[in-house]
Amino acid sequence: MQPDSIIQEMPRVAAPPGASETVLVVDHVSKSFGENHVLRDFSLALHRGENVVVLGKSGSGKSVLIKCIIGLLAPNAGQITVLGQDVATLDHGAMDRLRAKVGFLFQSNALYDSMTVRDNLLFPLRRHWLDHGPAEEDALVRQALADVGLEHTADMMPAELSGGMRKRIALARTLILRPDIILYDEPTTGLDPVTAREIDHLIREVQQKYRTSALIISHDMSCVRLVADRVVLLVDGRCYAKGTYEELANKLDPKVREFFA
């Protein structure tokens, strides 16, 4: 469970010694829809400043897990603690305040089609009552767009953007709140390999620049290799294996090999 030291291509963000504060704990969580048992007794911990990838097949319940964490779905059993707060016990106001600190990058980006990029970015800011003056809003938008390298798109509509650009804008929309934790739901799925690698690098850059912790859902092995400090393998709703990318890549277990072959 400790942060580890080697990764190819990208420098690893070493957690300062002794500072392995956990920001997110998923504790024996189960979730089923009727007879469909999606998560069974799943557990996971995320430390400050670290990127953990949850690896699993399509339909294995990765999106369900991440939606339980942010409180969009309620687990049937188990406990989820985010930044020290038990998600299940929070009232609306407390939940909103917590959500302001947790960025969520949706699988389908979820950009608001009817709003410009600028208004998309300002939406969470304004709705969380984090009102700023117009000048400050401008600066925040410009900064967030600069972070994802798309300064010139502020007045464009989402429909005018390419898939990779939309992903970046969606990331900018979470960054504008300066979250402590970012949850990425398949950030590279549906993108071409080149664009996907750009997004991977962006995820690393964000981690280094803002010292965010991230839970990344993926089944894209190149993405896993580039961004993961640790990997958790989700099979049949359970945590099947965990470790660094290299540790898992060297395992002989057939279910692990399915991913790393």
Binding site: R99, F106, Y112, F123, P124
Partner: peptide
């Protein structure tokens, strides 16, 4: 159609996690 596509593209969920 509008709400349907907002549901499918998770825009409704996105609003919910944005304090709305």
């Amino acid at each position: 159609a509008e709400l349907g596509s907002m549901r499918v593209t998770e825009q409704i969920d996105a609003m919910e996690v944005s304090g709305t």
